[in-house]
Design a binder for these strands. Structure first.
Length: 302
DNA sequence: CACGACGCCTGGTCGC
DNA sequence: TGCGACCAGGCGTCGT
């Protein structure tokens, strides 16, 4: 459940159930879902059992859960996870039978809520979880959305802040674009430049800002970059308000429910349909082994 | 160094 | 209906 809005829907769903809870048991059904973890499945299970979960935090498409120990000491470790193309984090009542494509299960006890199971389900196994160390953020700002702590897992340290993060530096972003000759769409997808944007929201943002996806990044004036960033944020906010984009049962919140933003897409997946602005058929081209959708009239190469 | 291609997986859909 | 080709919201690694 990939891009920022979908991952944020998951974070927001997990947070109230997990913050302040305790991990009673961990069951790894498929070790391929631990490719990020530096250790065996048994090691993962053993080191997490009995730990306290303090929060659920997100930067871009990465999620992490800072852990305390039973004595209440400050956190220095976290469960870090990425959903890949098809990962889901589902909240189920305790004892729920094994789900299709279930990879990892956490049995959770909370001081005031009923026991629950947090189930990591992942059809394609591109997603994975790990136990990771937390390190300070270079700018001393909060590591991500969901906690004030100025910490990030080592695996997230190279990931740029996302456009909805209050500590996102627009001037740094502009400077980075100005010295890159790559296509603007490729740069939007580069998580070390700006995080959280994937194929859908890249296409939607470029459509909204009327920028051709293959325009060179260094070719955009600062006014145009400003417009692009405004549209990126607007698209992400709208998608968030509608619960994210779901084309099928793959992209769902912690309760398995789909979002509604697919109905609001203007370019992505609308090949041959009329551009909502000018009526010209939307074009699909293959680009970096993926698809780009754009309006050939509104989005000129320049 | 900056950049782009490729591999990692499962399953749905489409055309023959 | 069967079967292969192609497609899908991503990331990390390894070439050039």
């Amino acid at each position: 459940m990939p891009e920022l809005p979908e991952v944020e829907v998951v974070r927001a769903g997990l947070a109230p159930a997990l913050a302040g809870s305790r991990i009673e048991a961990v069951t790894v059904l498929d070790p391929r879902s631990l490719t990020r973890h530096d250790g065996s499945a048994a090691d993962f299970e053993h080191r997490l059992t009995g730990r306290r979960v303090d929060a659920v935090v997100r930067r871009g498409k990465f999620l992490w859960m800072p852990l305390g120990d039973a004595d209440g000491r400050a956190e220095s470790e976290a469960i870090v996870g990425h959903l890949g193309m098809s990962g889901q984090m589902l909240l189920r009542s305790s004892g729920t039978p094994e789900l299709r494509h279930e990879r990892i299960r956490f049995d959770i006890r909370h001081p005031t809520h009923a026991d629950v199971a947090v189930v990591f389900v992942d059809q394609r196994t591109f997603g994975s979880l790990a136990l990771d160390r937390l390190i300070p953020t270079p700018d001393a700002a909060a590591g991500g959305w969901g906690s004030e702590a100025p910490l990030v897992p080592t695996q997230v340290a190279h990931i740029a802040r996302d456009p909805l993060d209050p500590a996102f530096e627009e001037t740094v972003f502009r400077a980075r674009l100005a010295r890159t000759r790559s296509a603007i769409k490729r740069v939007l997808l580069d998580q070390t430049v700006v995080s959280g944007i994937g194929n859908i929201y890249a296409d939607e943002s470029l459509w909204a800002a009327r920028i051709h996806p293959e325009r060179s990044a260094d070719d955009l004036s600062s006014r145009v970059v400003r417009r692009l960033l405004d549209e990126v944020r607007a698209v992400l906010h709208r998608a968030l308000a509608e619960g994210g984009t779901s084309f099928d049962a793959q992209y769902v919140n912690v309760n398995g429910q789909a979002g509604y933003f697919a109905h609001s897409l203007n370019a992505y997946g609308r090949t041959g349909e009329a551009c909502p602005r000018c009526g010209t058929p939307i074009v699909r081209v293959s680009f970096t082994n993926r698809s780009s959708h754009y309006c050939p009239r509104c989005q000129r190469r320049g």
